[in-house]
Amino acid sequence: MNDVCILVVESDILIRGPLAAFLRECGYRVIEAASGDEAQQFFASDNCIDVVLVDADAADELGGFVLAKWVRTHHPGVEVTLAGTLSKSVEAARDLCKDGPALNKPYDHHAIHDHIKQLLAARARNKQ
């Protein structure tokens, strides 16, 4: 899975760090962004991002929802999953995501891994 790259966008280091470490142990290449602005910088420099996990409550000006929509618009081949603490926000986020349900916080790392695998499998099927 080393060729699969996950971009984790999360402003809280105590959430982002352990999640990124877990996904690396699962074999993914993981890029950590502390804000939507940082995430956009990575897209500008790295065209190999496969999946984006976005905190719906991202604290910076861009915000999780806007970033998710931006990714869907400018990088339609990239899978986007929104996560957040507010169920209402998560419900709204589903409109912005192509596949599957949004994820609730606190993160269940194994559930996220399963979700990523489902996204990648669906994408592989669509490419066939």
Binding site: I13, I31, E32, A34, Q41, F42
Partner: peptide
């Protein structure tokens, strides 16, 4: 962010465990 990613990746390649703070 890009500098952080670059040095973090290099350190991981060298076998370190890296925690990233912005």
């Amino acid at each position: 962010a890009l500098i952080r990613l670059l040095i973090s990746d290099e350190l991981r390649e060298a076998g370190f465990t890296v925690i990233e703070a912005s």
